[in-house]
């Protein structure tokens, strides 16, 4: 990135603006959490709060990436590397969570045998060595 001094001066102003924006959004995100008036949804942390916090964080981080890290005008090669990296990072998180959210459930017959209608995988797991397992009734 070859730039003249005037260009750089202009950039410097942009950097300061971006810095100020980041400050403002940090304050916003804290206000939303600490002042009940700004709280979304139920008092305390819940899904809308989390979503809002993550949206702000994503916005802030994209500013840092695009402006400070010059990703708004970078070479194609770097985008290629980053696209794959992000894809793999998402697959790591996404597939891991997918696996967590899709455990084996006891077969309907088994549940009937146990005379427990609402057995979940969590319940089955919780009957770990420590807890006394209920003997299956036949």
């Amino acid at each position: 990135m070859e730039s003249s001094t005037e260009d750089l001066q202009k950039h410097v102003r942009t950097y300061l603006m971006v810095g100020a924006t980041l400050f403002v959004f940090t304050i916003v995100t804290v206000l939303v959490r600490t002042v009940p008036f700004f709280d979304f949804g139920v008092p305390g942390v819940d899904a809308p709060d989390i979503a809002f916090g993550l949206v702000i964080a994503t916005f802030k981080s994209s500013l840092v990436m695009l402006i400070f890290m010059h990703l708004n005008h970078e070479r194609g090669l770097i985008y290629k590397v980053l696209v794959f990296t992000v894809a793999f990072a998402i697959s790591l998180m996404g597939l891991t969570l997918f696996a967590q959210g899709n455990p084996i459930r006891p077969h309907a017959d088994v549940i009937e045998h146990l005379h427990v209608s609402d057995v979940t995988a969590a319940d089955v797991e919780s009957k770990a060595p420590g807890a006394k397992a209920e003997p299956a009734k036949h």
């Binding site: 597939l95 997918f98 696996a99 084996i104």
Partner: peptide, 20 residues
């Protein structure tokens, strides 16, 4: 990068994720 859990079929993964 997206095949790893075939090492984990016996860890109690459900049918959907196993199929994937």
């Amino acid at each position: 990068f997206i095949v790893w859990a075939h090492h984990m079929y016996l860890t109690g993964m459900g049918t959907a994720i196993s199929t994937f």
